[in-house]
Design a protein around this nucleic acid. Structure first.
Length: 243
DNA sequence: CGACTTTGACCAGCGC
DNA sequence: GCGCTGGTCAAAGTCG
């Protein structure tokens, strides 16, 4: 899941109009002012990135909570999907966001019923051939490597590994896009948690619950209110400067 | 017997 | 250059 950064909704105009050059201002002054302006914009962009990543983290958490609540207790599985960006580890989110773009990489989380089950089989409707397994440095559980075996020309690969934090959580990383149709009609891993809901009514309810939870969470977070106030006041100041 | 898994070896990239 | 790490290869093993 990727939250698009909409600078217009934040009231930030990145198309900053250059300072008007007047006849009595030396060119060097203009250059200095533009440099200052550039630095301010860079700072603002960093802040916005941080906020975006924080929000993204919160949405992911809410998705997990929501899924645990609504899913069948006897078959408690959940899938959290996101496109392009990783989440859920202790890695610095800001740094990770700078490593973007991760085009064609999808990370999926799937909860398994039996923690002792070491098969790490994730049914997603495609046919896979395992070609390797490796224990990685940051995770004691092995990572399994799969290639799509339906078509020799299909470039898609996937990596499956248990989460460090939760042994019942499988992290599946898909790379590339299938150039063929799905082989089986298994309950597939959807590209969005929303698509697991059956009726349009359920989708609407899901949206309502999600939005409400996000709003409540943000309302309870004093840091967010403080940051929001800072951002607004900074933005007002910036606007005044550019007048 | 074919398809699939397992597993040690190999390779490439990266940091020191 | 060396060591570490993640990713891939391929021979051997397993299973239906």
């Amino acid at each position: 899941m990727v939250l698009e950064l909409d600078t217009s909704s934040l009231g930030i105009d990145l198309n900053v109009t250059p300072f008007h050059k007047t006849n009595d201002t030396p060119v060097n002054d203009d250059l200095n002012q533009m440099r200052l302006e550039n630095n301010k914009l860079r700072e603002m962009l960093t802040i916005v990135w941080d906020k975006n990543n924080t929000l993204q983290n919160q949405v992911n958490k809410l998705m997990q909570d929501h899924d645990l609540l609504v899913s069948d207790p006897n078959k408690r599985k959940f899938v959290e999907c996101e496109e392009g960006n990783a989440s859920g580890s202790t890695e610095n989110l800001h740094q990770r966001s700078l490593k973007r773009p991760n085009e064609g990489v999808t990370r999926v989380y799937r909860r398994i019923d039996d923690p002792s089950d070491k098969s790490m089989v994730v049914k997603d409707g495609y046919q896979w051939r395992k070609y390797g397994q490796k224990v990685t440095k940051d995770n004691p559980s092995p990572r399994a490597y799969y290639k799509c075996s339906f078509s020799p020309s299909c470039p898609v690969k996937k990596k499956v590994q248990r989460s460090v934090d939760d042994a019942q959580l499988l992290v599946v990383i898909y790379e590339g896009e299938h150039n063929h149709e799905r082989v089986e009609k298994e309950p597939e891993i959807e590209s969005s948690c929303r698509s697991r809901l059956n009726s349009p009514m359920e989708v609407v309810k899901f949206d309502e619950v999600l939005v409400k939870q996000m709003a409540d969470s943000l309302r309870r977070n004093p840091d967010f209110i403080e940051d929001l106030a800072d951002a607004i006041s900074a933005n007002i100041l910036e606007c005044d400067l550019f007048k």
